[in-house]
């Protein structure tokens, strides 16, 4: 077990290192001079040269790469080309916002999806099952950004129940602070993106749970549980559903990746100041240090998620042995 965890940790470190390297060289080797976007080309060559020196862009590529690696170990992503503030400070502020939106909503989606899928499989063959499957497939097939737009159209514009975007009423708080997250105003802004994301993300676990359950229900041990005289509830939740949770758990890392991708989209529609929106803004402004920092952080979250899911998988299924 310890050996297994250590090996997974080593793999994780290698993956991360490869990704950091890939990112660095992708940004440096491709055409486009970052100074050209920050300083107008109309300005004189001297100012541009000073800028290049200041950001270390006049050094050889390998020196830049080593400096980059050294800085990363202390979470120094460099200075933003735009604001000249440390990129990490900008990213750090946004990370909390993304996690507050995505994590609760993914947990809710998985819980509702697992129970919902188990229930409709248990009561299979009826109209209810068919309509839930149709509805979930349709939801899953719609782009998340479009569902968000429709939700704003209906619930914010027509009914006026929720704000159309942002994390708190603009101008209400002088700057980001922890107190901000404890207000009703924040929850009011969180509600609509949370609901849309949950409804969208629960379709996949729901459909997967249903199809896994359909094959579990035919298993001998379910029949045996029933013959033992257990109540239908016990058979459903204690035996059939419990064994069907496994395939669902294996999809967690993949789903985490989708959730991150989804966050880019949902944050854009709702002007939610999270990592995804920051990345989109930084790309439009050619603010490479911020783009790289935000991307690496998103990648670290994804990789960590995969790692946790791998361990979880082993805990859930005693038949799996760690080698």
């Amino acid at each position: 077990m310890t050996a297994y965890v250590l090996r997974r940790l080593a793999y994780m470190a290698i993956t991360l290192f490869a990704m950091i390297t890939l990112m660095f060289f992708m940004f440096r080797l491709l055409p486009g001079d970052p100074t050209a976007t920050v300083i107008s080309p109309a300005l004189d060559e001297g100012a541009r040269e000073a800028m290049r020196r200041r950001f270390g862009l006049d050094q050889p590529l390998l020196t830049q790469y080593l400096a980059y690696l050294r800085n990363l170990t202390v979470l120094d992503f460099g200075l933003s080309f735009r604001t000249s503030a440390p990129a990490w400070e900008m990213i750090e502020l946004r990370l909390v916002n993304t996690l507050l939106l995505i994590l609760p909503s993914m947990i809710a989606a998985y819980a509702i999806g697992a129970f919902g899928g188990a229930l409709i499989a248990w009561h299979r063959g009826g109209k209810a099952e068919a309509s839930v499957v149709l509805f979930a497939t349709a939801m899953q097939s719609a782009p998340l950004f479009w569902l968000s737009m429709l939700a704003i159209l209906v619930f914010s514009i027509l009914l006026g129940w929720f704000p159309t975007g942002h994390i708190v009423t603009p101008g209400r708080f002088p700057g980001p602070s922890w107190r901000m997250y404890l207000t009703a105003d924040f929850l009011h802004h969180l509600a609509l993106p949370f609901l849309v994301n949950t409804l969208y993300q629960l379709c996949f676990p729901l459909l997967l749970m249903r199809s896994t359950m359909l094959s579990t229900i035919g298993e001998d041990y379910v029949e045996l549980a029933r013959m033992k005289g257990l109540t239908e509830r016990r058979v459903l939740y204690g035996h059939a559903m419990r064994n069907s949770l496994l395939p669902l758990a294996t999809t967690l890392p993949m789903i985490l990746g989708w959730a991150v991708a989804g966050s880019v989209v949902i944050e854009t529609v709702f002007s939610w100041p999270g990592l995804g929106l920051l990345m989109i803004e930084a790309i439009s402004g050619s603010d490479y240090p911020v783009v790289q920092g935000a991307f690496l952080l998103i990648a670290v979250l994804t990789i960590l998620g995969t790692f946790v899911a791998d361990l979880l998988y082993g805990l859930l299924d005693p038949r799996i042995t760690y080698r």
Binding site: L16, M19, M26, V264, M279
Partner: peptide, 23 residues
Amino acid sequence: MRITDMFLGLPFLPFIIIVLSLT
């Protein structure tokens, strides 16, 4: 499989957008 794992760590949409903004 190590290479595949590395690709699995790439965040889906953010990676595509970065590639598109560069190429």
